[in-house]
Nucleic acid binder design. Sequence first.
DNA 1: GTGAAAGCGCTAACAG
DNA 2: CTGTTAGCGCTTTCAC
Lengths: 340, 340
Amino acid sequence: MPVTIKHVAAEAGVSASTVSRVLTGDCRISEPTRQRVLQVMEQLGYHPNAIARSLVNQKSNTIGLVLSRAPRTAMAIPFFAELIGGITEQAYADKHHVLLVSSISREEECSQVLNLFRNKRVEGVIHAASRMDDTLISALAQEGFPFVVIGRVPGSDVPSVNNDNIAAADMAVTHLLDQGYTRIACVGGSPDLVVTMDRLQGYKNALTRRGIEIRKEWVICSESTTLAGAAASEKLLGQADRPDAIFAMDDTLAVGVWKGTRKFGINCPEELGIIGFNDDLISSIMEPALSTVRIPIFEMGREAAKMLIRGIQNEFTGKNRIVPAELVIRQSSMRKGYYS
Amino acid sequence: MPVTIKHVAAEAGVSASTVSRVLTGDCRISEPTRQRVLQVMEQLGYHPNAIARSLVNQKSNTIGLVLSRAPRTAMAIPFFAELIGGITEQAYADKHHVLLVSSISREEECSQVLNLFRNKRVEGVIHAASRMDDTLISALAQEGFPFVVIGRVPGSDVPSVNNDNIAAADMAVTHLLDQGYTRIACVGGSPDLVVTMDRLQGYKNALTRRGIEIRKEWVICSESTTLAGAAASEKLLGQADRPDAIFAMDDTLAVGVWKGTRKFGINCPEELGIIGFNDDLISSIMEPALSTVRIPIFEMGREAAKMLIRGIQNEFTGKNRIVPAELVIRQSSMRKGYYS
DNA sequence: GTGAAAGCGCTAACAG
DNA sequence: CTGTTAGCGCTTTCAC
């Protein structure tokens, strides 16, 4: 049996409460006793039982991380990988633990998260990808459980960390226009996600501003995988009346889009301009190097964790943090002769 | 205040123990009472407090995951990403939670993990990358805390899930030899890691078997990043007496190696054969497509979690699981005219 | 400053 | 089958 507070108390010749007091850093305790207790703890190799403390304090010092993706795919998404890095780093700094939530279906996930709260296992969660009509978010909000979403929740102002996807996508597409591309298509991930809708909006805004008509058949949103990107690309390029540039909503898709060009022997960036989003590692590696929009993902993770933990303690303050996005122009969108 | 077992008991007109019994699935309880209690639980929206249960049962149903990397970099490693997927999926199936351990330094990590055990927060951990002289592993073993390592611990038979890296690397290098490459260099990650040493051994075995001398200056192990791979590659290729093939210990490095060839205008696979390890997603995407060694990473994660959770319950059985490795031959190692 | 006592929410003998 | 009684290890009034 591990050594408990009682053992320490007995050994130090004090009561359990006194030991507890030095544990919690209670000030009204004499320095000599404090020292003695501390020493006995050390000597006995005492470690407070976090579970017991949690029980009485009603807090677990743990936050949950909801990826809302199948375990098999979630981690393979570079965005999530980096986000998790930021979250764990900040949580660690704030002395909190990070619990990974993973489930098969959306419904299961929802009930699993709610149970985590009701069972007192977590004090808050970070929800990494909000959907257009997110039942988990509404449930969380309704129950009053603390959470932060990465992204945006339309028509609601729940605590969130996000970038301005509409403006960023607009910026990316405008860049393509500035490079002389005019027939610009759009390839995106799940239409279910807010981020997809936002970036689509940005795409539309950019075209509209220049008086270019939106062509529905040039907008393909399915899922954010390289395979899907390639499929969309092939569909777009396989027709005579084809686009001369493609805005991909993330780099994973952009890589797929580029793969698609290979099938038709279409040159990038001369015959087809490509721009992605996220600045995944691969973007600077591939040839042609991929133009993209960079957002501080790691920082978003840190910020979300910080916001959540602060929020759990007091009340949420400054709930909607917007991080900046930056255009990273590489070869894939640099049409010859149009250097600006 | 949330509803507790007492409320349910009162409302159902039974004692707390009875409620507890239906909770734990105790069989000696009459069906009518069971139903009534169940119904009251439902009606009151009762959810058992996991912390309280943990306290009395002395178990948290939580396993820890130690990556032994800075948060910033850990998740960006495709191997880890997939491994985590497997671990969480299995843990979830076995009704366990996964706690992400993250720390700055190696020492901190070690004490953090030990404290997680002593504080009763976790019942076991999966250690994702064993080092040659791993203090955490010896500490864990000494304290008798349950754990599973992904990899191998030299001179010890702690529970582990691994592939036969020596044989797999041997296989990869032998493939290069079979393709007619004879001047084969080796680029690896941290020499501190067991996996690095094992793959290096495989590399040496393959060459030795064919009577080829090992050239020390053709073995460069630093860290597993694309940048480091490129640096090593440039160093190897920048000299007159250069290799005609490079065995990279993982695909991240292999991509770097390939990047290096671009600087010198060296053709792959004609002038330089490249083979990697892990079959990261990027391998099939890049051009030339990268030959590699595929191991079932996701399954390794599942297996490790399963082994650990079983081990926590009973004793560990069948502690050293070896998963198969498979050669995936693509363009980067296919020297013209040498198709086998 | 320190101790005694009560209790966080639940489980597990021990009775009946 | 079910209730009573003790705790699990810790914190926190409330006295002294």
